[in-house]
């Protein structure tokens, strides 16, 4: 006997079939790439063949690129993002909560936050370079600023979406102002906070690569830019690939953490 089926207007597939389709699609993509490059339809400088890229990847893993090992580039990039993430979290969560619960804080901070929030980080990078030079400090500041906004805004939205009944219930049970924040408001906002952190990591990663292309002598962004200046397209592709994989892995990890720690959501 077959299973019940819903009436559908748009095409629907089982999740297994979707995965198969994705694998086939990816395989076709690589095959097309292989044909275009191996048959010299596209010149090597524009699109080196996957075999060349793979060999170069092994080479870069063994002996590095642009005066540094791959691990140094990777390590410094990861350090920049996660140090910035740490600083941003420390400031954004408490500020997001206080702006949501206290209208004095909100009134004072609103004009600055509303202005800086939609500003693209690269727009104020030159200013940060003038003030803090081109060392680690200015990159960390830039990335922290980029990560701060989504975490702050999501925290605030999380606090504002707490049902009033929950707050009132806690007050009736004798919660002090501070207990209300730590025992009700903070845990209630965790899902939004995690979402903010996820978006923040994405922003941070984007800003990092851009910043490393503008002002750095290490990091994945720097490696990609150097390679492009010397038309070493293989390394450009390798850099992009690594950046993408790390972004996917961190996002998956964040989703795992969200599921594990915010099991009650939905």
């Amino acid at each position: 006997m077959s299973y019940a089926r819903n009436y559908q207007v748009f095409p629907k597939l089982s999740s297994k079939k979707i995965v198969i389709l994705s694998v086939v699609s990816l395989a076709l993509f690589i095959l097309t790439w292989l044909i275009l490059s191996e048959l010299k339809i596209v010149p090597k400088i524009i699109l080196p063949s996957p075999i060349i890229v793979l060999n170069k990847f092994i080479g870069v893993i063994k002996s590095g690129y642009a005066d540094k090992s791959l691990y140094e580039h990777l390590g410094i990039s990861l350090f920049r993002v996660f140090a910035s993430l740490f600083i941003a979290i420390i400031f954004a969560i408490p500020l997001g909560i206080f702006v949501a619960v206290n209208d004095y804080v909100r009134g004072i901070l609103d004009p600055f936050i509303e202005f800086y929030r939609p500003l693209p980080p690269l727009a104020y990078l030159p200013l940060i370079i003038i003030w803090f030079g081109i060392g680690e400090m200015s990159k960390i500041i830039l990335i922290t600023l980029a990560i701060f906004a989504p975490i702050f805004l999501n925290t605030r939205a999380g606090v504002l979406s707490i049902p009033q009944e929950r707050i009132r219930a806690a007050l009736c049970l004798g919660a002090s102002k501070w207990q209300l924040i730590t025992s009700v408001i903070f845990p209630s906002s965790l899902y939004h906070i995690f979402t903010g952190i996820r978006i923040g990591i994405g922003f941070g990663w984007t800003t990092l690569v851009a910043a490393e292309m503008v002002a750095a002598n290490s990091g994945l962004g720097h490696m990609v830019l150097t390679a492009s200046e010397f038309l070493v397209t293989e390394v450009v592709l390798i850099g992009i690939f690594i950046i993408g994989i790390i972004a996917i892995l961190t996002d998956l990890f964040m989703r795992y953490l969200t599921k594990k720690f915010i099991h009650w959501h939905r």
Binding site: E165, A169, V184, P187, H265
Partner: peptide, 11 residues
């Protein structure tokens, strides 16, 4: 106070 809904701590 007992509320109609939404007042428990889901975590």
């Amino acid at each position: 106070v007992v509320f109609q809904k939404n007042a428990l701590m889901p975590w």
